[in-house]
Write a protein that binds this DNA or RNA. Structure first.
Lengths: 122, 122
DNA sequence: TCTACATTTCGCCACTTAACGAATTATACT
DNA sequence: AGTATAATTCGTTAAGTGGCGAAATGTAGA
């Protein structure tokens, strides 16, 4: 029960649903997710940790960057039901659609260039 | 998005998951749900209203009793995924199993007798 | 080694949630 | 009409959540 409630709590937030939808296409660097959401890094990091604790996303560290992707557990038959439902329910959502557009622009420039630009702004 | 978050928030609580599991077999009177959960009637009523607002349960008034059941929306293909996942994930949960046992005893005596006994305790 | 920087952790604040009892509403029965 | 009672709404309180900036952590490159 505790495990299931951890998962449903993780899903009970619009920012975290946006993150999960962004990860539909594949893995993303934390900095890319931060850029799309336009929230404080610490806030996004907390959301990612909640998703990770619920075993909905996996983290992979590469150099100073951390990449996230939907977990293998999340793609298993049992949890696959949730994702199918979320994808189906949110595929026409405006926020999700604009996120996808923003994401496409960002993935084009690549992680290194994205962070370089980000550093210049400070 | 708002609608989906309303649903996931409704699912993000153990008491409400217990209620949904209790309603797997069919409709129940509010007083039966209150009896199984052993919480204040006002608390349970609030939970039921949250489930109702999320369109996960329907309410039917009969005399002074109110009967709840899983909503038809909830049984549609789209939301059916969630229920299937919940049922599958929780079928071996201890709390859910003891709830089922308690419920069986309570449904045997019937709603009128249950409320009569309840009144005598005061 | 020292610096830069991506990410996380921590501390704080505003807001929400879940619990209860008291008061209210609505229905059945006398 | 008046009473009893199932259920809900309201007000209050304690605990949890989501946001931020500051500080800490860890890694790449000078």
């Amino acid at each position: 029960m505790r495990e299931i409630v951890t998962i449903t709590k993780a899903l009970a937030n619009d920012v975290r649903l946006r993150i999960l939808m962004m990860l539909s296409e594949g893995e993303l660097c934390a900095c890319q997710i931060i850029e799309v959401l336009d929230l404080a890094p610490s806030t996004v990091s907390k959301h990612l940790s909640i998703l990770h604790q619920a075993r909905l996303v996996d983290a992979r560290k590469n150099g100073r960057w951390v990449y996230y992707q939907r977990s293998r557990i999340g793609t298993s038959p049992i949890n696959g039901d949730i994702f199918r439902w979320l994808r189906e329910s949110l595929k026409n959502d405006d926020q999700i659609k604009t996120d996808a557009v923003t994401l496409k622009k960002i993935t084009k420039i690549g992680v290194e260039e994205l962070c370089k630009r980000r550093a210049q702004k400070d």
